Amino acid sequence: MNLDFTQHCLPLAAAYVLALPIGWNREREERSAGIRTFPLVALATCGLIQATERLTKDDAEAMARIIEGLITGMGFIGGGAILRLKDSVRGTATAASLWVTGAIGVAAGVQSFDVAIMLSATTVLTLWLLKPLKKFTGTDPADE
């Protein structure tokens, strides 16, 4: 039995910290998922990758199947954040953010920290910087 916690601390902490700004944005926008949900999603996906390391150490296909399952699960969770109203759909940005947060956790779990950082940064920039452009599209920012 291997109880070396230190090798898992950095990826788990990175996943958690990189998801916080995304959760903060969704919280400030008063969306269905926010400051608690996003770090937990990243932590869970990272943890699942790490928990299966011994099972998949010499089998890239096995790891690919685990990642495929996580991607599918994140799509399912994200689908729950989307609401269809009379003539509009809400929650698509939150759903997409949940999906990318799962990817951040996976990237941190396989220690691709450069990918995790880029995913987090581009998601945060997209959510914050592109929001004002919604005014020019003729759609209400509350619709996302």
Rank of each mutant, 00 (worst) to 15 (best):
L3F: 15
Y16Q: 01
E144L: 05
L129R: 10
W128Y: 12
G34E: 08
L40T: 02
V89I: 15
F113Y: 15
T56H: 04
A142L: 05
F76T: 10
A108Q: 07
K86V: 05
I71P: 00
R36E: 11
T123L: 12
R28Y: 11
F5K: 02
L3P: 02
L133F: 14
A60C: 11
V100W: 13
F136M: 14
A108I: 04
Q7N: 08
V100H: 10
I104R: 02
T94H: 06
A14E: 11
G79M: 06
T139F: 15
T137S: 11
G73N: 00
E68R: 03
S97A: 13
G69D: 05
R65K: 13
A116R: 12
G47W: 14
L20H: 01
L125I: 15
I117F: 15
K135I: 05
G80H: 06
M63P: 00
A95W: 13
A19M: 10
Q7C: 01
M74E: 12
A44G: 02
L83T: 13
G47T: 11
G109R: 03
G69R: 09
L130E: 11
T123F: 10
G47V: 08
A15S: 13
L129Q: 09
A64T: 12
V89M: 14
S120H: 05
R84E: 10
R26M: 06
R28D: 09
A42D: 07
L129E: 07
D58C: 00
L119D: 06
K131N: 02
A116F: 14
G69S: 06
T37N: 01
T126A: 08
R84I: 14
G102L: 01
P39L: 13
I117R: 14
L12N: 03
L83E: 10
A33L: 12
L83Q: 12
T72H: 04
S32L: 08
L3K: 10
E144F: 12
